[in-house]
Design a protein around this nucleic acid. Structure first.
Length: 225
DNA sequence: AACCATGGCAACCGCTCAGGA
DNA sequence: ATCCTGAGCGGTTGCCATGGT
């Protein structure tokens, strides 16, 4: 009865973050369910995975969405619907959770306001024609995004853990943090990676464990998925 | 100054899918 | 071919901060 480890819930403490980050950077995540055991965390694997993907993963941006990012989300949402993970693939450094939250809190209203105009242009989303044009638009979205974002005048969102990443990671196009950082996105990443910024937004930013030198060493040598 | 409403964000839950035994 | 397990995804909830009254 009582010999099952109780899994902690709720917000992550800085100590938990550090344990998880150090473990994943060192060993990777072959099996998420074994991560909390080996990292000595009172969490379940699912929670660890979510925390890593949404908050600890290197290269994450934080802060406001740029106008271009919002346009991208709106465009892709019109094409794909609530496929947040697919939308997130087009926005390097943004998580599906973050995009989803931003959609529900802000963009949904924008989309509703814009709806009457779009209806006349797009017609019925379920039609074959729509799907074809959606694919075209998706390709366009893939290609236009990095270039346009580079040239955008608004302050860019900061990238988390940028201090972990050496210029080599960027210039060689080998930043496989998301598995989809191709050279296509290099331009975008170069625009973000060296932003000065706190690695931790939100509640724990006064106690930033990411600046730990040993961690960045580990990242440079071991981080590969 | 205190209370209430609202918005934003982090995390959890449940379902689905894929891979392996 | 079937079952089991783990990973991934989307929806939902809860908490906290902020603004308004």
């Amino acid at each position: 009865m009582g010999d099952k480890p109780k899994h902690r819930k709720g917000l992550w403490s800085p100590e938990e973050d550090q344990k998880l980050r150090n473990y994943v950077l060192k060993h990777g995540h072959v099996c998420w369910s074994s991560v909390p055991v080996n990292a000595e965390l009172q969490r379940n694997g699912k929670s660890c995975r979510l925390r890593w993907l949404n908050y600890l993963r290197p290269g994450l941006k934080r802060g406001l969405f740029s106008a271009q990012e919002e346009e991208t989300v709106l465009t892709l949402h019109r094409m794909l619907g609530n496929k947040w993970s697919q939308i997130a693939q087009h926005l390097p450094g943004r998580t599906d959770n973050e995009i989803k939250n931003h959609w529900h809190s802000y963009l949904k209203k924008r989309a509703l306001i814009a709806e009457p105009q779009n209806k006349t242009q797009c017609g019925n989303p379920s039609s074959d024609h729509y799907i074809d044009s959606a694919k075209t638009l998706e390709n366009q979205a893939k290609s236009y995004q990095p270039a346009t974002m580079q040239g955008f005048g608004l302050p860019e969102p900061e990238v988390l853990f940028a201090e972990w990443l050496t210029p080599d990671h960027v210039h060689h196009g080998s930043l496989d943090v998301f598995g989809n950082y191709s050279s296509l996105e290099d331009g975008l990443m170069q625009g973000h990676l060296f932003n000065e910024g706190t690695a931790f937004g939100g509640k724990y930013d006064t106690n930033n464990p990411a600046s730990d030198a040993s961690t960045s060493d580990v990242f440079g040598s071991v981080f590969k998925f």
